[in-house]
Amino acid sequence: MKRRKAGAQLKLLTAPWRGPLSALSAVIIFGGIGYRITEGWDWGDSLWMVLITISTIGYGEVAPLTPAGRVVTVLIVVGGLVVVQLAIQRVLGLKESGYFRRLREFRFHRMLERMHDHVILCGYGRIGQEIAAQLQRDAVGLVVIETDPNRREVAEANGLHVLQADATLDETLLDAGLKQCCSLVAALPGDASNLYVVLSARDLRPDCRLIARANSDEAAAKLRLAGATVVVSPYVAGGRVMAASALRPLALNFMELLAGSNYEIEEFQLSHDPLHLMDISGRTLSELELGRRSGAMVLAIRDRGELIANPGGEMRLAPGQLLVVLGSKRQLLTFQELLGEAVETIETMPG
């Protein structure tokens, strides 16, 4: 359906040029035929003469023209002027009708179709701008959905791809690449709008990771029921940071230091299928030597709902465990390769 829509748009965009191009082709073909009949030239010389006549290059005649050939030349010149005039009028008309704006939108949508593993950000308010800035620092592909034209201009000035549309509509989410994205962030100012976005996204793509903003506990509960993977309240998060600054300043400074570095924290979800863990199941961290071989550090392991911080070398890996690992991009990639098919999913907390 999407391809048919794109094909229909392409036909509409090319339609205005069919008339001038057809007229130009007719002048060239009939001019070539005229020279062949009146002068007896081959097709190469005939078409060459037509081209230098229409373009007014003035290379000179292929051969002295007969009176009939001069008549053909005059007709070609007149026909060329008509075609040029027709093309100029068409361009002016297209500019007034918004054709070039539609052309830019078509190219933009084609670009969106080619994006993969990107993040869709709904809303470019103060919170959305901070989210976008963080994702840009981590070189993550990003598409912003925003209805406000002023915010759209700000986002585009910051080098972002912006789709000016209503994020609560299914068509908008699909146009933004919901089927190919890695996650969607609903950061609209209203709880109802974020709820609509989460409901639509969960229905269109059940396995998509959805992060939603909530302004109250009641809205947070409803967003979780609607299918949000993570719900964040700016007020609660801000309060926790301020409290942490008062009680645990060193821990907070470490997280800020981590955010400005090349290091990341990733969550490696091990498969629940024992067949995928045949090489590592039941073996300890010391036996696998994951830290020494990759350079990454296992910070914690969640096993059957229990969080084990700073696991020792005697800790054994089992199906369904979640490994929280700190390292650079290269170290984390090596860590993933060592685990192989045992890894089911990977979630990143940008550093």
Score class of each variant (00 low, 15 high):
Ala26Ser: 13
Ala157Trp: 04
Arg126Ala: 00
Leu174Gln: 14
Leu173Asp: 06
Val62Tyr: 15
Ala6Val: 07
Met1Glu: 03
Leu339Thr: 11
Glu344Gln: 15
Ala15Phe: 12
Asn158Ser: 07
Arg213Val: 01
Gly40Met: 07
Thr172Arg: 06
Arg102Met: 09
Leu270Cys: 10
Ile265Met: 11
Pro350Thr: 12
Pro206Tyr: 14
Ile211Pro: 02
Val82Tyr: 12
Ile265Leu: 10
Asp148Gln: 03
Gly327Trp: 13
Thr73Asn: 07
Asn194Glu: 04
Gly44Ser: 14
Leu223Lys: 08
Ser281Ile: 01
Ile28Thr: 13
Ala155Phe: 02
Leu103Cys: 02
Ala251Phe: 07
Leu160Tyr: 00
Asp45His: 15
Val91Gln: 01
Leu112Phe: 07
Arg224Asn: 05
Arg248Val: 09
Asp217His: 15
Ala165Gly: 03
Asp175Ser: 10
Ala243Ser: 12
His118Val: 06
Ser328Cys: 06
Met255Lys: 11
Gly159Thr: 05
Gln180Arg: 15
Leu195His: 09
Met255Glu: 11
Ala15Asp: 04
Ser233Thr: 13
Arg213Ile: 01
Leu288Cys: 11
Ser22Glu: 08
Ser193Ile: 01
Trp41Arg: 13
Glu130Trp: 00
Leu307Asp: 07
His161Ile: 04
Ser183Cys: 15
Ala63Val: 08
Gly58Ile: 02
Ser216His: 14
Asn194Ser: 06
Arg202Phe: 04
Ala192Trp: 03
Ile28Ser: 10
Leu121Asn: 05
Cys182Asn: 13
Ser261Ile: 06
Gly282Lys: 03
Thr334Leu: 14
Leu135Arg: 04
Tyr99Asn: 05
Leu199Thr: 07
His276Gln: 15
Arg248Asp: 10
Met111Ala: 14
Val325Leu: 08
Gly320Phe: 08
Leu173Val: 06
Gly58Phe: 01
Val144Pro: 00
Arg316Leu: 06
Ala342Glu: 03
Arg90Leu: 08
Pro64Gln: 10
Asp138Ala: 15
Ala251Cys: 10
Tyr99Phe: 09
Ser55Leu: 12
Ala226Trp: 06
Ala300Asn: 10
